[in-house]
Design a protein around this nucleic acid. Structure first.
Lengths: 219, 219
DNA sequence: AAATAAATTTAGATTTGTCTAAAAATAATT
DNA sequence: AATTATTTTTAGACAAATCTAAATTTATTT
């Protein structure tokens, strides 16, 4: 079965809103999608008929297993395309969202898998959000993005945003790897670069792009 | 002004059908788009109101300058994405058309320009069709694809399908460049590789991919 | 040139996704 | 618990893109 762009956008919006436990309300959805409650009600009936979600009048909505699967597929595409735009086409990480909103609806299954392989099966997108794999599994992230680490808090590198050879080459050159212990000494707002200090080394600065590709755990 | 996917598909279809001189008929368009004549008539009125084409009842249709510009933009995107799918993502050249039909409607201007640069400003797509540049200009092609050259006809390399460093590296290694004179000795249907003979050299075979990246003129 | 055939357009209906306004159900307040 | 406020649903209408069937125009034949 295949779904319209509008249907996919509803499913994705519900997915993002139902993170906690409770059901998603009609008004929440209307706000998220910049539409009206009446339109949402109509669409929920349609999506219920397609078995993508469970919905009872006045009770709100939750995705079914099938709906979740569809949502994860869309999120996967969105985040893979964002990764592509930033790491391959040199977009700024802050200008890729709208483009990815369009690209995430391209339907070819083969395209997604080939893109994933080309990018080196990245686990996190440029914003540090996890990319679902082809089975819908995402890396869980107790780790935080290095760029969000507080100054002078010691932390340990626990993951990288991608497996690209370019990133790995740079990390090797800077002697950074999984397990490296470091802390941030300064943050420069001009270019969002940060100065980091690794034990027994002089402090040095790394770019925003590199910091965003690194995930750390507090120690 | 922005256009729906349907409108863009009509404009593209008219562009491909009006290659010669005459006007494009309602029935021709209906056949091309797998729709009915009545639907075409409706849409032509709409596109005329948007000044994308000139249309008089019962007289057929031709694109305006503006319509042509839009069409060239869509063709440009289609062929750039085809090039990307084949050369970057390793799709077979015969399986990219449907995917490119979707990708050609992604609207971001910046995406197209960055993709073009990433690919090395290719002049021809994997089928040998010319890719319009950002101003809508296409390389004219008296040249034919090497893969379509008849056996034992002497020809001269007149163009390459792209400027990618990978292609140029391979061409350098094989001592092939613009102006190289060669002829095809055999074609192998198993993998579509061909055996070529360059003056004063031993014959050697080249891959389908390489042959498709080379354009020649008969001499 | 009249008659027939083919192509094209109009008229009216359908589907998808949306809206406004009114009605119904749920939640909050006194 | 009754009243008010909020949320949600229904009813009816609309725009986009399509369709079928009928009407009209152009082309072809006799």
């Amino acid at each position: 079965m295949s779904f319209s762009i509008t249907e996919e956008n509803y499913i994705k919006a519900i997915f993002h809103l139902q993170l906690g436990e409770g059901n998603v309300s009609t008004n929440e959805l209307a706000a998220e999608l910049h539409t009206k409650a009446a339109s949402v009600t109509d669409m929920l009936k349609k999506l219920k008929a397609k078995k993508l979600l469970s919905y009872e009048k006045y009770k709100g909505v939750r995705l079914s297993a099938e709906g979740k699967k569809l949502a994860l597929g869309i999120v996967r595409k969105h985040r893979l395309w964002e990764f592509f735009l930033v790491n391959t086409l040199q977009f700024g990480w802050d200008e890729v969202h709208e483009v990815a909103e369009e690209l995430e609806h391209i339907s070819s299954k083969k395209l997604v898998e080939k893109l994933d392989a080309f990018l080196g099966f990245p686990k996190f997108d440029p914003h540090g959000d996890p990319i679902p794999d082809s089975h819908g599994k995402m890396a869980i992230q107790q780790q935080i993005n290095l760029i969000d680490l507080q100054i002078n808090k010691m932390a340990e590198v626990s993951g990288v945003g991608s497996q690209s050879t370019e990133l790995l080459e740079l990390l090797k050159h800077k002697s950074i790897g999984i397990g490296t212990k470091l802390e941030i000494k300064r943050k420069f707002s001009f270019d969002n670069s940060i100065e980091i200090k690794i034990k027994n080394q002089n402090a040095f600065t790394i770019s925003q792009q590199l910091a965003q590709a690194l995930f750390v755990k507090l120690i």
